[in-house]
Design a protein around this nucleic acid. Structure first.
Ligand SMILES: [Mn+2]
Ligand SMILES: [Mn+2]
Ligand SMILES: [Zn+2]
Ligand SMILES: [Zn+2]
Lengths: 144, 144
DNA sequence: TTTGATTTTGCAACAATGTTGCTTTTTAAT
DNA sequence: ATTAAAAAGCAACATTGTTGCAAAATCAAA
């Protein structure tokens, strides 16, 4: 059984499911996420796929994937957005990623802790919460 | 009693306390933070003080203030760092801001919720937490 | 209060990042 | 195969952030 073909098929399925036409750049970028444990910054993707594709294409592909709920963004303190695959039931225009993110201060790798749900936050009366983002910084498994 | 003078004196005191020489740009930028309820992005500061000072000076001043524990950064989803005054006992090289931040999805204002402490997060065994950042998005008091 | 070492600023040049309009190419349906 | 629609590539531009260096401001000591 050819794993490469299977992955390729899964990628095509994901794209079709989201009403996206199957293009080289979308296939390549989605594959990068599937091969990856952690999250990817725009820069990472540009380095890994950028020789084949225009910078603008990478920007537009990431934007499309976020809109479709295929990947989600992770805010970090260093002003560089990371992207990671959505594992929850995210769909076009609506994300449901209620998990905590972890950024290693040493290796800078960023992880989705899919099993750690974001806590309830009790806000002052005047505020209405729509979404809670939790980013934990520290040392990852590999770095301590 | 002249409030202007008092503020000015307080600003000078803060700078001295942190072993910073008292300069026009530092005074002006610190004053902006004191006049302000919420947080300021670099862009805001550049607009409000930028006609008088060089862009580079604003960058360097903010960096210095962060290092000295006068202000702290707030990560946000839109990749634009916000800065706010430290109210806790932050000092040179060491911050102790354990409060939750709130970003209004409507007006984009960013608030320090100084009384809402960041919760404990139970991580998988392999991870060590050094700092927890919580950013809540929703509607602020003025926008609902 | 002048002097002089030290720090900070402004400027210029550059690098990195992100955006937009338009043309060509690719995709997917007929 | 043909064709309409979508996406990619390209160029030009805008914004944001960084660095080295000379000029100016600050501060402390004389
Ligand atoms: Mn995630
Ligand atoms: Mn704060
Ligand atoms: Zn690590
Ligand atoms: Zn608001």
């Amino acid at each position: 059984m050819d794993t490469g073909t299977n992955t390729e098929a899964a990628i095509a399925r994901t794209l079709k499911k989201n009403n996206l036409s199957i293009t080289e750049s979308r296939k390549k970028i989605l594959q990068l996420f599937l091969e990856q444990t952690g999250a990817l910054a725009h820069g990472d993707i540009e380095k890994k796929a950028g020789e084949k594709f225009d910078r603008v294409t990478v920007y537009r592909t990431l934007q499309t994937f976020v809109e479709k709920g295929i990947i989600h963004t992770i805010p970090t303190a260093d002003n560089s957005i990371r992207y990671a695959l959505c594992k929850d039931a995210c769909s076009d225009g609506h994300h449901h990623d209620h998990h905590v993110h972890f950024v290693c201060t040493n290796c800078k790798k960023t992880y989705c802790l899919d099993d750690v749900v974001t806590p309830e936050i009790k806000l002052p009366k005047d505020y209405t919460a729509e979404q809670v983002e939790v980013v934990v910084e520290g040392l990852c498994r590999d770095c301590r």
